[in-house]
C-alpha cells in the first residue's frame, strides 16, 4: 500500500495541474517547484502559484501494450507528452481516443480520471489524463 499522505499532498497538481511560475524569469514549472533552477538565488521568494493550461497539443505519444498491473484493464492504452497552450510539457495518459488516430499536434484537454487504487480496499488515486478536445 502506497502512502496516503504522499498522494494527498500532490492533489493540487494531480487534480488541477497547479504549477508555479518564477516571476523573476517567467519560467513556468509543472510539477510545482518552489526553487527556480534557472534563477536559483535570484528567484528565491519570487516563485508563485500558477495554473497550467488544461488544453494543449500532443507533442509525442506511444501506445503501451505492456502495462503496469494497475492498468491491466486499460491496455493497450496511450500515453502522450502534451504541450499545453502555455508551453509546458506534461506526460500523461491519453484516453477515450481511437488508438490508431493519435497524431502529433492533435488537440487535447485534461480530465480527471482514476490513476490506480491500493487494491480493493485501499485509497483510490485520481489525477489528470488527457482526452481529445471535442
Amino acid at each position: 500500500m502506497s502512502s496516503v499522505a504522499r498522494e494527498w499532498r500532490e492533489i493540487p497538481g494531480r487534480y488541477n495541474l497547479k504549477g508555479t511560475k518564477c516571476e523573476n524569469c517567467g519560467s513556468i514549472f509543472f510539477p510545482a517547484r518552489d526553487f527556480c533552477p534557472k534563477c536559483r538565488r535570484a528567484g528565491i521568494g519570487k516563485v508563485v502559484p500558477y495554473n497550467v493550461c488544461r488544453t494543449g497539443k500532443v507533442y509525442s505519444f506511444s501506445v503501451i501494450h505492456e502495462a503496469p498491473d494497475c492498468n491491466n484493464a486499460m491496455k493497450p492504452y496511450a500515453v502522450a507528452m502534451v504541450q499545453t497552450d502555455d508551453g509546458v510539457l506534461v506526460s500523461a495518459q491519453l484516453v477515450d481516443v481511437d488508438l490508431d488516430k493519435i497524431e502529433i499536434g492533435m488537440p487535447v484537454r485534461a480530465v480527471l480520471r482514476k490513476l490506480d487504487a491500493d487494491g480493493a480496499s485501499g485509497v483510490i488515486h485520481y489525477g489528470y489524463k488527457f482526452v481529445p478536445n471535442l
Binding site: 509525442s60 505519444f61 506511444s62 503501451i64 505492456e66 502495462a67 503496469p68 494497475c70 492498468n71 486499460m74 492504452y77 500515453v79 502522450a80 507528452m81 506526460s91 500523461a92 495518459q93 490513476l115 490506480d116 489525477g127 489528470y128 489524463k129
Partner: peptide, 11 residues
C-alpha cells in the same frame, strides 16, 4: 501517471 520507462523511450 501511468507513463512507463519503455513508453518514455517510445515517445
Amino acid at each position: 501517471m501511468g507513463v512507463t520507462f519503455a513508453s518514455l523511450h517510445a515517445m
